[in-house]
Amino acid sequence: MSLNVELLETSFNKVKPHANEFASSFYSNLFTTYPEAKPLFANTNMKEQGKKLLASLVLVVENIRKPEVLSDSLKGLGARHVKYGALPEHYPLVGNALLMTFEQFLKDDWTPETKQAWVDAYGAITEIMLEGADYSADVLNLDNQTRADKMKPDY
C-alpha cells in the first residue's frame, strides 16, 4: 500500500499548532465513544499520555519517508502496548477516535482524500505495531475483515 505522504504531512502540520487541544480532544472522543477503553488508562497521568500521543504522531509523520526507522519504532511501541493491556481489538477504537479528532480540527480541510490518507496510514501503523506485539496466536486470530469493519467510523 502506498501512503499519501504529502497529504499526511500537510494535514498534520495544520493541527500541530493546536497539539495540546488535539490530544485532549482525542482522549475525550475515545472515552465518550468507547467507554470500554477508559479502564486501560485508569492509572495513567493523562497530561503525560497526551504528550506521548503527540510524540508518536510526530514520530510517524517525521519518519514516514524513512520506513526502516519508522518500522523499528512502531514495533517497539506495539510491544510496549501489550504491557499496558492493549489488545488488537483496541486498535480500531483508537483509529476511529483519531479520525474523529482530525475531522474536528481540520474542518473543511478534512476531505475524502485526507480521510483516506489517515485511514491508510493508521492501517499500516496498526499492522507494524501488531508485528512488534508478542500476542499469542489465539489473540491475533482476528481476521482482517473484522478489523476493517471496525475502522468504518460510525459517526
Rank of each mutant, 00 (worst) to 15 (best):
A86R: 05
F105P: 11
K47I: 15
K83G: 08
T101R: 11
R65F: 00
A121G: 10
L77Q: 12
G50V: 00
A55T: 10
L59D: 11
P35H: 08
P67I: 02
V61T: 11
T114C: 13
D120S: 12
A55M: 06
A97C: 05
K83Y: 14
N96M: 11
M46W: 02
S136G: 07
Y135F: 15
H90W: 02
E127D: 15
A86Q: 06
T114D: 12
E131K: 15
D138G: 01
E62F: 01
T101M: 09
L74A: 02
A133G: 05
M46R: 08
N141H: 11
W110F: 15
L53A: 06
D149R: 12
M151Q: 09
L140P: 01
L106G: 15
R80N: 10
R65V: 01
N43I: 11
K75I: 02
K83T: 06
G78F: 00
E103W: 06
K51H: 12
E36D: 11
W118E: 07
N141E: 14
T44Y: 04
D134E: 11
S56D: 12
M151A: 08
Y34V: 05
G78I: 03
P39S: 01
Y122I: 05
G123D: 11
P39G: 07
Q116H: 12
M151T: 02
S73V: 08
P67V: 00
K107R: 14
